Simulated assay, not measured.
Amino acid sequence: MLEKNVTTFIACDKPYDEAEFVLWGAPFDSTTSFRPGTRFASSAIRTESFGIETYSPYLDKDLEEDARVFDAGDLELVFGDSERVLEQVKQMTQIIVSDDKIPVMIGGEHSLTSAPVSVLARHYPDLQLLHFDAHTDLREDYLGNPWSHASVIKRCHDLLGDGRIHSFGIRSGEKAEFYWAKEHLDMHKFNFDGLEDLVEQLDGKPVYFTLDLDVLDPSIFPGTGTPEAGGVSFDELRIAITKLAGLNIVGLDVMELAPHYDHSGVSTAVACKIIREILLTFSK
């Protein structure tokens, strides 16, 4: 008898009822400020994931044995309607959280992060946001659009308020954004200095982790819509993620791969490996 052909991220094929994590794709890039293409990320990541091993020699863990992840596929999102798409993402997040599972969103553009943050902030009134990125993303709006990916952390601040957003790797933004951040955010420019101290401070608190992959240097990760020179290395990012192992992660996302800008496929391979390390790091 033939079986239904379903492509999942490698080894993320556990039954929903048994899953700790629910991984799903959000193929949307209507507000990108430079180069579009992140809507192709989740499908490329699933396909290319079969080029990496399920076993992590860094963590001595295996996705087959040490993680319980259900891949729910991609949402069918309305192209060009940011507010409607955000509602769709909220609905998906609510289903997963209501079933006492951890949502793992694969973007797609970074603007979508505000949707799961809004849902989880209702479930966890003391929610903290941990943010790895090249960009401040603190504009009130971009070309009149308050839901732009250049405004996503400002929208998250609208939800969470001062002192609950912790940004690392930031190296690009308007002067006004950096000065605003000094008053309202916990921002660490250029690298992950201060991360270990923060992990101690966040012990026991619910944390949403958002990773914009352009935190990586474009020499390692050119496949993104807004590349910024001067980023971190793969190992620096991997080690930083490992340091988060003790946190109470209640949701996370990995955003902003635009696979077609790297015809070698290396950027997608890097994204796949980072997702593997994240899932294994946070698996109970």
Rank of each mutant, 00 (worst) to 15 (best):
S42G: 02
N191S: 14
V215K: 11
I249M: 06
A181P: 10
N191Y: 12
E200L: 13
G223T: 10
N145G: 07
S33P: 12
D197Q: 13
E236M: 14
A150I: 11
T210I: 02
E109V: 08
G73P: 03
D141Q: 15
E53D: 15
D66C: 05
I52S: 07
F209A: 03
S42F: 11
G25N: 04
V270W: 07
H184M: 04
I275P: 04
S30N: 12
L160V: 01
Q91G: 05
L86F: 06
D29P: 01
A258K: 15
F192T: 02
H263C: 10
Y142T: 10
I96W: 02
T281Q: 09
S30T: 09
D126I: 07
T210G: 00
A19V: 01
S111C: 09
E65Q: 15
G169F: 05
A240W: 07
S33L: 14
S42V: 06
P227G: 08
G225C: 12
A176R: 15
A181S: 10
M255W: 11
G204S: 10
D99A: 08
D100V: 05
I95M: 15
F282M: 03
A240C: 13
V69T: 13
H149P: 03
P125T: 00
P103F: 01
H131T: 03
E228T: 15
L216V: 05
E277H: 09
I165G: 00
K101F: 02
E48V: 14
A269D: 10
S264I: 11
E183H: 15
R122N: 00
T54V: 06
F70N: 03
D66P: 05
V97I: 04
L252C: 07
S148R: 09
I102M: 07
L77A: 00
V207H: 06
P227A: 12
G161C: 11
R164D: 01
L120C: 00
Y55M: 02
S111G: 13
L211W: 03
D126S: 13
Y179K: 15
L129T: 04
E65W: 12
V97M: 00
G25T: 04
P116I: 00
G169V: 02
F40M: 14
E65D: 13
W24L: 03
Y16P: 01
K284M: 02
L185C: 05
E76H: 15
A121R: 00
F132I: 06
R276I: 02
H184V: 07
T242A: 14
M92D: 06
G230A: 14
P146H: 10
F192Q: 01
P103H: 08
T47W: 13
C12Q: 06
G73W: 03
T93A: 02
N248V: 03
A72E: 08
Q91V: 11
K4E: 14
S111L: 05
P103Y: 04
F282L: 06
I52C: 08
S98W: 02
E256H: 12
L211P: 02
G37V: 06
A181F: 08
D60I: 00
D217F: 06
F192N: 00
A41C: 09
S233K: 07
D60V: 00
E277V: 03
V97F: 01
A19Y: 03
L279R: 07
T54H: 09
A271S: 14
D66H: 11
P27C: 07
G163K: 08
L127F: 09
L138M: 14
T8E: 10
D60Y: 12
E256K: 12
